[in-house]
Computed example of a mutant assay.
Amino acid sequence: MKKLIKPAVPGAVIPDVERGRDLPPDGLVLDWTPHWALMERRGDIVAEDPPAAFLPAEVSPSEPPADATEPGADPGDKATRIRR
Rank of each mutant, 00 (worst) to 15 (best):
M1P: 06
K2D: 15
K2S: 11
K3W: 04
L4K: 02
L4Y: 03
I5K: 00
P7H: 07
V9D: 04
G11V: 03
G11P: 11
G11A: 08
A12V: 10
I14L: 10
I14H: 02
P15R: 12
P15F: 11
D16T: 03
V17C: 06
V17P: 01
E18R: 03
R19G: 08
R19I: 04
R19S: 12
G20K: 08
G20V: 07
D22W: 03
D22I: 04
D22T: 09
P24M: 09
D26E: 14
D26L: 09
G27V: 08
L28D: 05
V29E: 02
V29F: 05
L30G: 01
L30K: 00
L30E: 01
D31A: 04
W32M: 07
W32G: 03
T33Q: 05
H35F: 12
A37W: 01
A37N: 00
G43V: 04
D44C: 02
I45Y: 01
V46A: 03
A47Q: 03
E48F: 07
D49G: 07
D49W: 06
P51H: 06
A52V: 11
F54K: 10
L55K: 11
P56N: 09
A57Y: 07
V59P: 04
S60Y: 05
S62F: 13
S62H: 08
S62T: 14
S62K: 09
E63H: 15
P65S: 15
P65I: 10
A66R: 14
A68P: 09
T69R: 11
T69F: 11
E70A: 15
E70G: 10
E70R: 09
A73K: 12
D74F: 12
D74Q: 09
G76E: 09
K78P: 10
K78V: 12
T80E: 11
T80A: 12
T80P: 09
T80G: 15
R81Q: 14
R83E: 15
R84E: 11
R84I: 13
R84V: 12
R84A: 13
